[in-house]
């Protein structure tokens, strides 16, 4: 006797979901494109709190000295640098998946920042930039007077 109910649509849906997740997992970071064909490098995550905007980027193999970070016009961040290929004398490459070359990324910030107090940190190839918001952009509590 058959005890499991046949649910073709549910089965198909979960199968599709599984397939989609599989594709995202495999190709999420691994689309076969090098730096040159990528639309933007480095990719960034950006978030904020009341006082500052935070930008994080993965730049493995690079150091602070390889990077130029600028604030343009108060609300645009530019990250510039170059990643050099490793040098090995005599031999051959079987695989070259990592990208190399010069890059520039411009990021429009959601509010003006104080360029003098920007702080950047590099750890294990992850760059984190803290951009304190300019005074004018900070949220302000407005006192409401009741007559």
């Amino acid at each position: 006797m058959q005890t499991t109910r046949w649910q073709p649509f549910v089965d198909m849906q979960s199968e599709m979901n599984r397939l989609r997740q599989e594709m995202e997992r495999v190709f999420g970071r691994f689309d076969g494109n090098g730096l040159t064909s990528a639309a933007a490098y480095p990719l960034v995550n950006l978030w904020e709190d009341a006082a500052a905007i935070y930008v994080e980027a993965e730049l493995p193999g690079m150091e602070m000295n390889d990077l130029e970070i600028y604030i343009n016009g108060g609300n645009q961040l530019s990250i510039r640098g170059e990643r050099r290929p490793p040098q090995y004398p005599q031999g051959s490459w079987h695989r070259r998946e990592r990208g190399y070359g010069a890059f520039t990324r411009l990021i429009d910030l959601p509010s003006p920042v104080n360029a003098d107090e920007v702080h950047a940190e590099f750890k294990n190839g992850v760059l984190t930039i803290k951009l304190p918001k300019s005074e004018a952009a900070k949220p302000r509590r407005i006192e409401v007077k009741v007559q």
């Binding site: 970071r29 691994f30 993965e58 730049l59 493995p60 193999g61 490793p86 090995y88 004398p89 005599q90 031999g91 051959s92 490459w93 079987h94 695989r95 070259r96 998946e97 990592r98 990208g99 294990n124 190839g125 992850v126």
Partner: peptide, 19 residues
């Protein structure tokens, strides 16, 4: 992502593992 290099003495694997 990995680069793989081979010469007479060794295989070298170079991978990006940020963080």
């Amino acid at each position: 992502r990995f680069d793989i290099f081979e010469n007479a003495d060794e295989l070298v694997l170079v991978g990006d593992l940020p963080g």
